[in-house]
């Protein structure tokens, strides 16, 4: 799969463990966009998202020794950190009290302030097109679970499907995403 990383994950992790600024720069350049996208989807407020991105990187920096590569990729680990921080924020009292915030359940498309001009992240020209082809219900399912941390019971309620079907449905959504992505690579490899 195409990634922004021109560095092996192990090398990045050892740079981070050595508290090397180069490690931070690579980490930030490679992952800040994706993590910021996740955070924005959850909190839908620029100021909060900026703070949360900062908290995410501080937490990654402090806790890199706890990352265990045998249990998953570095992105999954970082994604969980940013997601949990963002979900905690959304569930916190001060966030709920603020009337400007849009309810998480409304699931509206996040519109970005003009103040922050959003440029598309590296690598994502074609990737976005591929992912946009995903069935809307699959997309919604992945976002609820992957981004917003919905449990299987909450998914069951949201979609009105039995709890037992949730797992199958999630597998189908991830499978469909995988098929699309590998389809693109297959196409490129066939052409050359």
């Amino acid at each position: 799969m195409a990634r922004r990383i021109s560095i092996a994950e192990e090398d990045l992790v050892s740079l981070l463990k050595g508290k090397d600024q180069k490690g931070f720069n690579i980490l930030y350049n490679n992952y800040s966009g994706a993590l910021f996208g996740v955070i924005n989807k959850i909190v839908q407020s620029n100021d909060d998202a900026n703070d949360l991105l900062q908290d995410t990187f501080l937490k990654i920096w402090r806790n890199i020794d706890n990352y265990d590569p045998s249990k998953g990729s570095i992105f999954t680990w970082m994604m969980n950190i940013s997601r949990n921080l963002a979900i905690d924020k959304v569930r916190s009292a001060d966030f709920r009290d603020s009337s400007q915030n849009i309810s998480m359940e409304e699931n509206v498309v996040y519109q970005v302030d003009n103040e922050y001009q959003i440029v598309q992240d590296i690598d994502s020209i074609g990737l976005k097109k591929v992912v946009d082809n995903l069935k809307p219900e699959y997309k919604q399912l992945i976002e609820l679970v992957y981004y917003k941390g919905y449990t299987q019971a909450e998914v069951s309620e949201e979609f009105g499907i039995p709890l037992g079907t949730v797992k199958t449905r999630i597998k189908a959504a991830v499978g469909s995403l995988r098929a699309m992505l590998s389809g693109l690579w297959l196409l490129i490899n066939l052409l050359f």
Binding site: M1, G33, A34, V38, G72, T76, M79, Y116, I118, D123
Partner: peptide, 16 residues
């Protein structure tokens, strides 16, 4: 599975 989900996150990346 991680790669597919990671690609999904990268497709929805926003530059801070």
């Amino acid at each position: 599975i991680e790669n597919a989900l990671e690609s999904y996150a990268f497709a929805n990346a926003q530059t801070p």
